[in-house]
C-alpha cells in the first residue's frame, strides 16, 4: 500500500483526495435533509389522515417544508459538482 502511494505523483493524490472529498461531502450533506424530509412528510401524512378535509392546505405547506429542507442537500450536491475532478 505504502509502496503504491510512494509511486503515485502528488497530482494524482490530489485528484483522488478531491474525489473522496466530493463523495463524502455529498453523502454527509444528504443525511440531515433526509431525516428532515422524512419528519416533514410523516407528520403531514398523519395530519392528513386525522383531518382529511384539511389535506389541501397540509399538502401545500408540506411542499414548502420539503423545499426548504431540500435546499441543504442541494447545496451539498452543488459542492459535489464543483469539487468533481
Amino acid at each position: 500500500m505504502l509502496n503504491i502511494l510512494a509511486q503515485t505523483g502528488a497530482g494524482e493524490m490530489l485528484e483522488g483526495l478531491k474525489a473522496i472529498g466530493a463523495g463524502l461531502g455529498y453523502g454527509l450533506a444528504a443525511i440531515g435533509p433526509g431525516i428532515g424530509i422524512g419528519t416533514v412528510v410523516g407528520n403531514a401524512i398523519s395530519s392528513m389522515a386525522r383531518q382529511p378535509e384539511s389535506a389541501g392546505m397540509v399538502r401545500t405547506t408540506m411542499f414548502l417544508g420539503i423545499a426548504f429542507t431540500e435546499a441543504l442537500a442541494l447545496i451539498g450536491f452543488v459542492v459535489f459538482i464543483l469539487l468533481l475532478p
Binding site: 423545499a67 450536491f77 459538482i81
Partner: peptide
C-alpha cells in the same frame, strides 16, 4: 440564490 439553485440542481441531478 436558494430559489435558483433549487430549480437548477434538481434539473442537473
Amino acid at each position: 440564490f436558494s430559489l435558483a439553485i433549487r430549480l437548477w440542481a434538481n434539473m442537473v441531478a
